[in-house]
Design a protein around this nucleic acid. Structure first.
Lengths: 177, 177
DNA sequence: AATGTCAGTTCGGTCACTGAATCAAGGGGG
DNA sequence: CCCCCTTGATTCAGTGACCGAACTGACATT
């Protein structure tokens, strides 16, 4: 959502959750983080989000314990934003939203998700129960592969990096091509 | 979300879904509809949403095929808004969001959900798999019961109507007390 | 006729978002 | 040393969404 982000008078976990992640762009930042994006600039080019808004969202998400700011080199000092357990726990929500969006508004499949340890495609629902193993697949073991509907040659390097099959949470590798 | 609600350049079912239901208040309107709210005025008092925003959201949701406007009496002409299958399909998303909000931000349990046909509490995940029956419970068979954290005597009649255990989608009965 | 209800629409003010410009801290090259 | 580049922001003017209150219009009740 956006604007005055509190829903006064609402006694509801859903409303509470939306106060935290309901602002515009917020869930897309979390999605990118799950896809392995970690750096300010990568979020910027991949989302096309205004810089000020990105800075504000990263700060809010960090304050709410969803992202953690981490120094990854000292000179020059550079930080990256990685998901905490609380942030990773948003995966079922994003998965449910993505399944709904694909079912009702997207013609072709853009991405598929597989159980990395056995290769089986995860199709059922937000909790990624593996039809072969019968277990709930932990988020780091979910492998993302591009679907037929995805642009094969996107302009920005982050989208290009996301064309390779990769596990969730695994940092992306942007080639400088 | 708000403001220019489209996320340009995003090739993603999640972004697509957020363009439809990501604006402020939208998901709360859908939540209320799942709880059985159907009338303009009931949404208004229960959500505390500005009238103009509610009118806009109801129109958008109707245009997107999530709600359906239905005449329920002719004089005076009165319409109610009921969820379509596309709208009902948002339940797993809202369930996931509510579970995450409760887990991380709400101290006491506000509402519980049970399998109406066998009484078993649904705790696992967005898809409401019943631990007793082993089946996925269809949305109309999910019974909502108030939890210990809920205000026992709320001010507005809609909140009061929602204190009684009731199935999802079943219309609320507001007593004029 | 007067009052009340329901479902909106209109309107001015405020505040968040947008996009461009700018800033600051540290390399690296010449 | 000076200039420019990269990264991670902050500032600022302009736009537009949201807010709350007032108003409209159709009908019902008293």
């Amino acid at each position: 959502m956006a604007l005055g982000k509190d829903y006064a008078r609402q006694e509801c976990s859903i409303a509470r959750a939306l106060e935290v992640v309901g602002e515009r762009w917020t869930l897309l930042v979390v999605r990118d983080a799950l896809y392995g994006v970690r750096r300010y600039n990568d979020f910027l080019v991949h989302l096309g989000i205004p810089r000020a808004v990105l800075a504000a969202r990263l700060q809010t998400l960090t304050a709410e314990g969803i992202l953690e700011k981490r120094r990854y080199q000292d000179s020059p000092p550079r930080d990256e934003y990685v998901l905490t357990d609380r942030g990773i726990a948003l995966w079922p929500t994003l998965r449910a939203l993505g399944l709904w969006g694909r079912e009702h508004f997207t013609e072709t499949q853009l991405r598929a998700f597989r159980h990395a340890t056995c290769g089986t495609e995860l199709e059922l629902g937000p909790y990624d129960e593996c039809p072969a193993c019968g277990t709930v697949v932990p988020v780091p073991d979910v492998e993302m592969v591009p679907g037929p509907g995805l642009d094969p040659a996107p302009a920005d390097p982050v989208s290009r990096a996301l064309l390779k099959p990769k596990r969730l949470l695994q940092p992306i590798e942007t080639d400088p091509a």
